[in-house]
Design a protein around this nucleic acid. Structure first.
Length: 430
RNA sequence: GGAGACGUGGCCGAGUGGUUGAAGGCGCUCCCCUGCUAAGGGAGUAGACGGUUUGUCCCGUCUCGAGGGUUCGAAUCCCUUCGUCUCCGCCA
């Protein structure tokens, strides 16, 4: 959420930053609502002040036994009540209007984020790893011989419909090993604190990180009003909602391995083959909470922690900085990491690391004090995948595939696979 | 799910209609004293919003889990709701 005072102070600057994200100017509308709101505040507060004075004097008069004055002042204050209520209702309306409009405006991008309309305008910043030369035509993961028994899409469709998969046997175990490996790596090497958050959250929690109110159709809601998290960024970032943290607690670095749930409402027909895009998937997520001055460096650090997973698994990737048109709602700068998928002959997103400056912090009222007694300031929040586990499984399978239908597994997974290094063509670990 | 109790400032803890944004204690900040440490003395110490201003000075409004109500006036009374604790039931 944007600071209305900042918009008032520099409406043109605000509009031009919106323009970079392809959004029409809003400052004049916002300024008008805000002026109405301020007028309403002034009106209400003046009336309340008068009422309070009369009421206080009434109390004094009664204490002094001056019944005539008491009755007169009581009448005065009583008559004001209706008027105050009317002005209060008006104020509430203006505040609602402003808030609901502000809640639907995306974050603005940092100056150095490249302008652009869509993913074609993203800018590659680095590549890592050698893409294998295949002596045969590499297959997509769901076509691999070793996955015939280990990935059952028909079974999943029978149980749950489209965009689900049942992993079985060694494939399920490799998937689990990947999750364990990532979580252990983020905690023991990369300095994140492991947490195990709820995957069902309240509406306010979803508003805090920006999924609501605008993107309700992208997530699932339960019959008692809870929401299923589309990413544990939602749960973990909100650990600091409505808190005033001591400055020495920052940076806060959190990680979790959870299920994530997405309706994929806008993705009908896309990525329907295989398990690239599912309604339910697992992800190890990183969240950082920092001071404003540290957040950009933290973004680089977080990106490196995500890249570290791919490098340790020996998976080629490239890192891109998203252009203004491709960025998510709450981000002010985003680094996507795309892993090489030889079966698709392309790089596909496997991690997205974003800094949201104080955009989420304002929504969830997350603040800190630099020193004891100092004024509270909004924190900066960051989130990033470290990594998407299902997609990482795909990458491991496609990059390690052999002509005979088996897969050579990354050595780094050995500790979680009893030292096994191969998924055989008939779906066994060896 | 049933019965009961409770939710006050960073923490503990007073406060059952009136000048209480809130006693007292602890903690914290600053100052004084003490050769160090410990102890002692003094002052200060919630947040949001608005006015004013970019001076953290002043004025006003709101907030005692949240929302609503009664009243001239509510932390104090009533209703709803959320959460915590105890007992019972059920259950992974």
């Amino acid at each position: 959420m944007h600071d209305i005072r900042k918009i008032v102070h520099d409406p043109k600057g605000f509009d031009s930053s919106l323009e970079r994200r392809g959004i029409d100017p809003l400052s004049s509308v916002l300024l008008e609502i805000d002026q109405n709101r301020r007028n309403a505040i002034a009106a209400v507060e003046q009336l309340r002040a008068e009422r309070n004075t009369a009421s206080r004097s009434a109390g004094e008069a009664r204490a002094n036994g001056d019944h005539e004055t008491f009755e007169r002042l009581r009448g005065t204050a009583a008559r004001m009540r209706e008027e105050i209520a009317r002005f209060e209702a008006n104020l509430q309306e203006e505040e609602q209007r402003l808030r609901s409009l502000l809640l639907e405006i995306p974050n603005t991008a940092y100056d150095d984020v490249p302008d652009g309309a869509d993913e074609d305008d993203n800018v590659e910043v680095r590549r890592w790893g050698d893409r294998r030369e295949f002596s045969f035509a590499p297959k997509e993961h769901h076509e691999l011989e070793c996955c015939r028994a280990g990935m059952d899409f028909e079974l999943a469709a029978r149980l749950s419909g489209a965009r689900f998969v049942v992993l079985i046997g060694a494939v399920a175990r490799i998937h689990r090993a990947l999750g364990q490996f990532m979580l252990d790596r983020q905690t023991t090497r990369n300095g994140y604190t492991e947490t195990n958050p709820p995957v069902l959250v309240l509406e306010d929690t979803m508003i805090g990180t920006g999924q609501l109110p605008k993107f309700a159709e992208d997530s699932y809601q339960t019959n008692d009003g809870h929401w299923l998290i589309p990413t544990s960024e939602v749960s973990m970032t909100n650990y600091v909602s409505n808190q005033i943290l001591d400055g020495d607690r920052l940076p806060l670095r959190l990680t979790a391995h959870t299920l994530c749930f997405r309706s994929e409402a806008g993705a009908a027909g896309r990525d329907t083959a295989g398990m690239l895009r599912q309604h339910q998937f697992e992800k190890v997520e990183m969240v950082s909470v920092t001071t404003p001055e540290d957040s950009l460096a933290e973004l680089d650090r977080m990106t490196a922690c995500a890249e570290d997973i791919l490098e340790t698994l020996e998976l080629p990737y490239r890192t891109v900085i998203l252009c203004t048109g491709d960025m998510g709602f709450g981000a002010s700068r985003t680094h996507d990491i795309e892993v090489w998928l030889p079966g698709q002959n392309t790089y596909r997103e496997i991690s997205s690391c974003s800094v949201c400056d104080d955009f989420q912090a304002r929504r969830m009222n997350a603040r800190f004090r630099r020193t004891p007694g100092a004024r509270p300031e909004f924190v900066h929040t960051l989130n990033g995948s470290g990594l998407a586990i299902g997609r990482c499984l795909i990458a491991v399978l496609e990059n390690g595939q052999q002509e005979d239908g088996s897969v050579r597994l990354p050595a780094a997974l050995g500790d979680w696979l009893d030292g096994c290094s191969t998924l055989t063509a008939d779906g066994q670990l060896a």
